[in-house]
Every structure is written in C-alpha cells, then in structure tokens.
Design a protein around this nucleic acid. Sequence first.
DNA 1: CGGGCATATAACTGTCGAGGCATATTCGCT
DNA 2: AGCGAATATGCCTCGACAGTTATATGCCCG
Lengths: 114, 114
Amino acid sequence: MSDAALWSALADPHRRAIVALLLERPRPVGEIAEACGLSQPSTSKHLKVLREAGLVRVRQDAQRRVHALDPAPIAALDAWLEPYRRLWNRSLDALGRRLDETSDAPRHPPPPKD
Amino acid sequence: MSDAALWSALADPHRRAIVALLLERPRPVGEIAEACGLSQPSTSKHLKVLREAGLVRVRQDAQRRVHALDPAPIAALDAWLEPYRRLWNRSLDALGRRLDETSDAPRHPPPPKD
DNA sequence: CGGGCATATAACTGTCGAGGCATATTCGCT
DNA sequence: AGCGAATATGCCTCGACAGTTATATGCCCG
C-alpha cells in the first residue's frame, strides 16, 4: 500500500524534479529550493512527502538537512513495470517478425510464444 | 510534457487497476466498470484520462468500445527509470563489495547487468 | 423509424493537495 | 544565554479532480 504513496509522490512534477536533482548528488534543502525555484516551506513539504514515500533519506549536518535518494522504491517501480515490459517486448517482437517477413534478411528462430 | 499526463494518469489507483486489467486482455467499458467496482460514468472518465495519456487505445465494435493497452508509454516510463536503475545497481554493487570485504568468500567480478 | 443497449458528456458537489505567509524549532557560534 | 542560519510546521485559500445523477449520442435490430 506504500505503493500508493510512491505513485502520488512521483505524480508531482516538482517532486520529480527534486528526485532528478538528488540523482546527481545529495543536497541540503536550501539548495534544492533554489535549484527548483521553489519557496523554502514548499520545498520542505515536498521533501516530507518524498521521505514518507521512502524515496529520500536525510542526514543531519549541523543545521543542514542533507537529502539523498533511496534506491529501494525505484526497484519497486521497476517491479511494477515488469509485466508491462513483457507486453512491450512482445510488441517489438511482432514488429520485428513483420519486418522479417517483408525483407529477405536472415531470419532468427521464432521465439517461443507463451 | 505528456510525461506529466502519463504520471498523473497512473497516480490514481483505480486507473492503475484498469491498466492491470487491460494487461490480461482488451475489454469493453462495462466489463472494466464491473471488475473494478466503479460506476459506468466514472469508468468512462478514467478511460478518457488513460486515452489522453496514450496508455490506452480504443477499437469500436458495434456499441462496444473495446479498450486495449498501448505499450509505448510503458517504454517512456522505463526510459525515465533508466538513470535511477543505474543508481540501484550501483548500490547493489556497493553492498556486494562490502559483503565481500567482510567475508573470506571468493569475490566475483561485478555482473554486467543490462 | 423507433426502441433499447453501451458509452460518452454535463452539471454539481465534496475532498485533497499545493502554494504562500507567518511562526516555531533546532543547532552552532560567540 | 542570546543570536542568526537552516529547516519544519500551522493555518489559510484556491484550484484540480473524483464521484454521482441526469441526459445526450451512437449503434444495432425489429
């Protein structure tokens, strides 16, 4: 069910921007705020959401609160995506087969259809 | 841009449920509504959102409107995920290295995960 | 061509979340 | 202790969105 938190956290474009920023390196709140053109309180709130979704972790450094990405939820997203990726591959496959049929290129063995 | 539409479409749990349903097979609106326990108008609206996000395509069959998944946006999500997946692998890597260091087990070379 | 089915759309309402401002909290420093 | 910097929190407002009811549209068939 923290699935829901994850999705709604990433639903916001500002939050995705923050996540992208943190991909480069961990950053304190102020830096994030400035980089995203957000006010400090707003940034703090977004970070709270990200924290509660498990996407972000905090390390306290004096008055600074340095936020860093936590890779785990990304894996959860990846897992969610899995079955759909299968669909995607299947459709690529079909496209490839169709191309093969209309060309005289060497054909690879038909993959076992499940 | 349409990235935003994709995320906000998938932000809704009912919509994710619909998408999951359509993964099994294409379905007409009524069937989706019943399966998700949603009213017909609500279902129609959700499907409209999914359509506008490009996640779903319609085929008209008499009065039925059969909705099916479009794999393309899934690929977009996958692409978005890419850089984060790298982070994830890196952290797995680090974990592995740490385990290697504290054990006397033979160390294996980092597996080229693609 | 009228009736009934499947679906879309309109109008309205309640809820939720984002942003802004002011203020509280926490920590380091002198 | 007192001050200033960095961040969190409370309160408020506003707009976006989901759900409902009622109605419109398109399509097949008799």
